[in-house]
Structure formats: C-alpha cells, structure tokens
Design a binder for these strands. Structure first.
Lengths: 325, 325
DNA sequence: ACCTTTCGAGATAACGTTATCTCAGCTTGG
DNA sequence: CCAAGCTGAGATAACGTTATCTCGAAAGGT
C-alpha cells in the first residue's frame, strides 16, 4: 500500500480512501491510484483491515461433517450471504476435542459469530469465550448447561405426529429404532416415543430399540421388532441413516411393514413405496440461526432465545401401509 | 496483551514468549503471566499474529456445495489436519461469480493455499492472484486455460472399464446417460463413451444421452434407450445423481437392465440388486491435493503437476445382469 | 580477580490497515 | 474584502502481534 502511494505520488491515506470508495478523493487522484494499484498488483490484506476495524465480517460454522448432506448448513450460508457475511465452515467429526479445537480457532481468528452443532455435554470451554463476548448460536442440539441461543427442531411433536399417523392407519404395535440416546436429538425422540406408547396403553417391550448405528444392532432390532408373539406392524426410525439401514434389513418385507422415517432425504422418493417422513424445516432453522446470530452480534445484551421449529409429516406411501391382517 | 504484561509486571515480549511456549522464560515469570492471562481472560488474536508472521496456517476449500456429500472434502480436511493446517470451507453453488467472490475473499484473507473445484471456463480472475503467489490446487476438474496444479479422476478409463465389464457380461447395446457436457467431467465421460462405442463397432444412435439433469430429460432418455427396434440391454450413468434418477424411472425394470453408475454412494447397497459402480478414490484425491498444495506453499517454484487418480469398478450385482434373451 | 560466555528479559520496530486530527486552498455570504 | 465554512488530502497514531537488538547479571575458565 505504501508502494502504491509512492507510485501514485499521494499519501498512504489516500490509497486507503480510493480502495474504500471514499468520495472525498478527486477524480484525477482516483485515476492515478487505480493505475498504481494495477501496475503494482496490489491486493488488500483483510487481516490488517480486520485488525484495525475490530470486526471480520465472517461467521464460522462448526458442523459434524461438512461432507455430509446438511440442508441446514446450506440455509445458513445463503442467509449469511444475503447479509453480506462470509461463512467459513469446518467439521467437528462428532469429536468433542475437535469441536473445541475448531471453535477456539475460530475465536482466536475473531470471527464475528459462530454457528455450532454441539457435541457431547461438556461445553465448559465456551464459558470464557462467551464472557469475552463471543456470539454463538447452537443448531439442532442445545449447549447443555449453558444459557446460549439455540434453534431446534420439534423432535417430540415429530415423533407424536408419526405415531398418531400410524395409529390412524390402524396400527397398534409400533416399533421405534433410534440412535444412541447419548445424542440429544436421539434422546428426545426416544423419550417422546416412550410417552406415546405409554399414553396409548401399549407395552414398550420389544418396541423400543436405541443405540449406536451399527449394522448388527439394526439388524437385530428389526428382527426383534418383527418377530415374537406380537410383532410390530409399523416402524418409526430415528434419523435418515437409520431409515436406510432399516430398509436394507427389511429387504422384501418393506412392502408389508409401515415405515416412517425421521428426516427427509433424496432417496425417500426413490423407493417403492416412497418413504413417508417427518421432515425438518431446514431452511427455517438455518435462516433463524443467522437472524439470531446477527441480532446478538449487533447487541450482545439481547436476551437468550431458544427457538423450536415445527416439523412436517410428508406422507408418501410407506407410512400408509395398513397392518398385515 | 499489554494489560497482561502490566498485571504480571513483565514486558510485553515476555507475555508473547509465554504464550508461544518459548523456553527462555523463568518458571516464576511463566507462572505470574499465566495467572495474569487467566485473571484478565486474555485470548490471543490470530489476526495480528498472522499479520506479523505473514502466514495464516489456513487453507481454503471452495467446493460446489458444502452441504452435499463430498468425500473428497473429507479427505482434504483430514489430510490438512494431519499437517496441522486448518481448512475453512465455503460453497460456490456452481456459480462462477460466487466462486470468484469466495476465492478472492480467501485471497484477501491471505489463506496459505486454496483447494478449488473450478466452475466454468473463464478463470482469468485467478491470474493476478497466482502471479502474486497464490498457491492453488484444482480438484475434480482442471482450471481451463491456466497452468495450475490439479488432481483428477481417471474418468476415461472409468467409462472404458464399465463398458468392457458390460461387454464381458454379454451386452452389445449399451446406453450412456450423462450430465451436461459443458461440465468437464461430463464431457470427458461422454467422450470416452463415444470412443468405446466406435471402437466396438456399435452405433451411437439412441445410445448416448447427455444434458442437464432434469426429470423429464432423464425419463425421455431412459425410454429412448430402452425402446425401438434395438433397445439397450445395459445402461451406464454419468454420476451418482443420474444413477438415482435413472433408477427412479426404470422402476420395476431395474431387475432386467444391467446398470453401472459412476460414483459410489450410500444407496448403492440399499437397492436390489445392489448397484455396480465406478468408484473414485476420493481419499487419494483429497490427500494428494493437500500434498501438492503443501509442496507448492513450501516452494512456489515447484513445477506444476497434473495428477490423475485411478478409479475402481465395484461389482455388486446390477452390472452383472445378463442381457434379456 | 578478570574476561568471556550464556541466559533471561526488556525496548523498539515492524506487519498493513483505518480513524482522527490537521491544514491549505477554495467558495460563499454579508 | 474578509471571516466563516467547506473540501480534498496529508501526518500520525493506533489495532495486537512477533523479530531483532540490547543489556544486565550470573556462570565458567584462566
């Protein structure tokens, strides 16, 4: 920049003015500076700019796996772009230590705010950052033990809706195959399922199967649910990955067992019958997260909000299969 | 930092030494500085650090869609992490203007290097950046017109392998349904297919269908390929998305038509029969990209390399269906 | 006892920006 | 015709780090 100033024969400050489109520079000088910039191949350095300005115009997104389908992240990117903010994302790989490393890196880089899919239940490392003014919004899961903005899906009502839908189609013995209950969403969904069964006067017995997603476990769960004296006639799955696994193990039986999957996915319409799902409103989640983050950045004293976004049941066929006589 | 120094009663430089684990600080001072850091909630500012150091220890990844399945990105993140580099990723949404915006932002932030999935064919905006020392590696597609490091899959041999595989299983009339040939990989794959048909003495006729992925077009292509006096008995698809679409339109016929899909995917083993695919070695692509990028960062005069990574045919059933008698 | 080496720690000057203050040269109105 | 206001542009001081140089004191060798 100092070279550009020398080349153009102006003061350093004037180059800065030209670069920032300040109107108080005469057209002749603007021209000279422009030429000098082109001649010297000057490229502004945002590090220095951000350092001086205090803000970076950058949001961080720490998600479980960048390279997985994540429609919320897409909405986050779009909403941020609309607000002229750059989103830079990194994976936490479902690893608490990596999450901490990623988030702390973003803090040291002084990102203006962070969108986080929190992992595990100890987020103590966030406390000093929050005290120092970090703007953070949790997505999909809350930050346990900390009073932090968050945007969640209405997991409970998703399960309830699915359950009622199956009951309305004549099912009485409905099984649930879910993820490891140490995961917040899995816990919420399983607990909602328990409440449904109890309210409906049924027995949990062989109807509830949760745990780590693992080929053998899913297979065993499907078998257990469909066998015995009172086999299930319908299954609800706890997430998209489990829908896939359950379908894999159902095999040809898929046409006889009603199935509702949590989470919509591309393959839902590839199957026969198409998969009935409880779909999250990922666009709403993403845009809400950015709105909340921007509000907090603008005014750190904004009171903490916990937003729950409704889910929607999309009937496509698999959830409307009647119980085998 | 100056506050910490005052609090601890030491010089600024000494705080810096403690933060950077410099061994030339007495244990007593280290202790005092540590306490001051904790008391004041000091958090180092990487912007200033990077400004002073010149490097940022950060790589950018500009990919088409963060929120899509992208195993190459996963490998890139892992390889970078192993080298103690942080990867920050952003989507280009298949939009040339957005690509430019994202890449230029990363340049202004002085990322040490960028992994790019290039879009379109005018990358002139990169020239001044490269001249100014930008380290860049293109992945999946080359940067047309510019001599830049890149890592590509062996698209041609993937198609050839699939073609030969089908011939070996008795097929004679093999159709190809591919993506828009304005996309580099789609062009390469379609062109390889043309060469296969010609070499095999067949007619392209109703056998080659390329264009934008669109419901109607794919449907029409499938119909055209399977009808007429000499219908295809096997289909090769140009990418994972097309495999899905083609399967959707094949419907119940899927058991009668041999199918080989380009790109492996989760649902390949969900179908019956399981999908035979040409799988890219995404791990090799990602790690190679990072290796090349690191080499270029270390020595910008390294000569430009264009690496082609082999692909592998994974037979799972759908590609071994014999031609209908 | 004196010179040299080693070591711990401080002072100062960058890195590349922008905000603030200053000032010279105009215009403008009474 | 002059004071007051405006306007374009320069000088200087930050922003928060780290590299370099310097210096005093302690340790070691003759």
């Amino acid at each position: 920049m100092v070279d550009v100033a020398r080349e153009a024969g102006v003061a350093l400050r004037t180059v800065s003015r030209v670069v920032n489109q300040d109107s108080t520079v005469g057209p002749e000088l603007v021209q000279r500076v422009r030429e000098a910039i082109a001649a010297l191949g000057y490229r502004p350095d945002e590090r220095a700019r951000h350092l001086r300005l205090g803000v970076t115009g950058t949001l961080g997104a720490a998600v479980r796996q960048l390279s997985h389908v994540n429609p919320v992240l897409r909405a986050v990117e779009r909403a941020a772009r609309a607000a002229d903010l750059m989103v830079l994302a990194a994976s936490t790989e479902d690893d608490e230590n990596l999450e901490r490393h990623v988030v702390e890196s973003m803090c040291r880089r002084r990102f203006d705010g962070i969108v986080l899919e929190p992992i595990g239940d100890d987020h103590g490392y966030l406390v000093p950052e929050l005290e120092a003014g970090l703007s953070l919004v949790a997505v999909d899961r809350p930050v346990l033990g900390l009073d932090v903005d968050c945007v969640l899906s209405d997991n409970r009502s998703g399960i309830e809706t699915a359950y009622r839908h199956l009951v309305r189609h004549g099912h009485d013995r409905i099984a649930y195959i879910g993820d490891d209950e140490r995961i917040f969403t899995a816990q919420e969904r399983a607990s909602a399922f328990r409440a449904c069964v109890t309210a409906h006067g049924g027995l949990l017995d062989t109807m509830l199967h949760t745990g780590r997603v693992d080929d053998g476990r899913v297979h065993a769960a499907v078998r257990a649910a469909l066998s015995g004296p009172a086999p299930a006639t319908a299954i609800i799955t706890g997430n998209a990955q489990l829908s896939v696994e359950v379908l894999r193990h159902l095999g040809a039986d898929a046409v006889d067992v009603a199935l509702i999957g949590f989470d919509d996915s591309e393959l839902a319409t590839l199957l026969r019958p198409d998969l009935t799902v409880v779909a999250q409103d990922t666009t709403a989640i993403g845009t809400t997260a950015i709105d909340m983050l921007r509000a907090r950045i603008a005014d750190p004293s904004t009171e903490v909000r916990k937003v729950t976004v409704p889910v929607e049941l999309i009937a496509r066929g698999s959830g409307e299969i009647p119980p085998a006589s």
